Amino acid sequence: MAVKTREKALDYILNEMVDVVENSKDEVFHISEEARTEYERLLRDLEYTKAKVLRYIDEGDKLEQNVRYSRKRLSEVSKYFDRYSEDEIREVYESTHELQTKLAMLRQEEKGLREKRDELERRLQNIDHTIKRAENLANKISVILTYLTDDFRQVNEMIEEAKEKQEFSLRIIEAQEEERKRISREIHDGPAQMLANILLRSELVDRTFREGSTDDALEEIRSLRKMVRSSLYEVRRIIYDLRPMALDDLGLIPTIKKYITTTSEYNNINIEFTSIGEVKRINQKYEIAVFRLAQEAIQNAVKHAEATLISVKIEICTRNLNLIVTDNGKGFDPSIKRDKSFGLMGMKERVEMFDGVMDIISTIGKGTKIVIQVPMEGLF
């Protein structure tokens, strides 16, 4: 009964995660379609405006010819003033003035149409960029969905095999479930929230444009572009978190260095890294475990500690591999149990799976130090 309950819980988590990603993809698709509809409407408006500009140019050219002829007539009347009657002179002056006034008004309207045409072209270009980014984001989410589906399918196959052969313990299964919950929370708190915000901002752009505030609409589009870019980064980060390819190719130390560099640049925070001992490849499952532990410790310091400096040290000794992560953040009281400390719980479980130990040293206002010690036996 307990096994069936766990299976249902796992299936529910997997389905929920897939639904979140699929819904995010649908939201991005709707944003893209709305932007495309707006693009087509603006394109029609642009074509109409261009045609109107050409018509005004043609009318203006013709009117300029009439003005030149009228000025020539006026010059002749002024030169031979005594040959024309007072009515004829007044008629020539009024006719010339009327033509000049009409030409000035026509050119002013032509100028306004040209500015409208240029503005429509700029807006079309911005919306086109939004459409392309939305389509690109949808493609990236499709890749994430494929990754999740494939990974979860493989995990389910592993669990089924474990059940048949009785080779896996309950702790491993629970650890796998916690890993999936963590990924689900990251997707929900990251891309899903961003996509929802993008949808709301796109509606705001539409409402702002319909209310006639073009500058505000353009500002909202620029803000929307930044949000799409940030969402794309989060999607790529989740893909990297699922499985850093550099771990297979380069090994533990180079992969951690690369991760620290990327995290430091993105979060604009100083992260120092030190490696002591001989750098060589270790058992793959240990490389993955140590990398995940370092990754979780760094993310905790970045997200929760409000630190300005993080120090990461790996010591490869004769008997143990030590991972030490220190930050100068706000700290906390380790004796107080926190309801949602999933990250620390997952780290402790992972360390215990490899017969290691983890100590958390933290004081409120004085930062946090996490010390992890894993036996070297079995690492190679």
Rank of each mutant, 00 (worst) to 15 (best):
G329W: 07
K330S: 06
K330T: 11
D333S: 07
D333G: 04
P334K: 10
P334S: 05
S335R: 08
I336G: 07
I336C: 08
K337Y: 12
K337W: 08
K337I: 09
R338N: 09
D339V: 09
D339K: 07
K340P: 00
F342C: 04
G343S: 11
G343D: 13
L344D: 13
M345I: 08
G346T: 12
M347P: 00
M347V: 12
K348V: 07
E349Y: 04
E349G: 04
E349F: 00
R350S: 02
R350H: 00
R350Y: 02
V351L: 05
E352A: 09
M353W: 10
M353F: 11
M353Y: 15
M353C: 03
M353L: 14
F354M: 12
F354V: 09
F354E: 12
F354W: 09
G356T: 10
G356L: 06
V357D: 15
V357A: 15
V357L: 14
M358D: 10
D359G: 03
I360S: 07
I360N: 11
I361M: 11
I361L: 14
S362N: 01
S362L: 01
I364K: 13
G365A: 01
G365N: 01
G365K: 01
K366R: 13
K366Q: 15
K366N: 12
G367H: 15
T368P: 01
K369E: 12
I370R: 02
I372M: 09
I372K: 00
Q373C: 11
Q373Y: 04
P375H: 10
P375E: 14
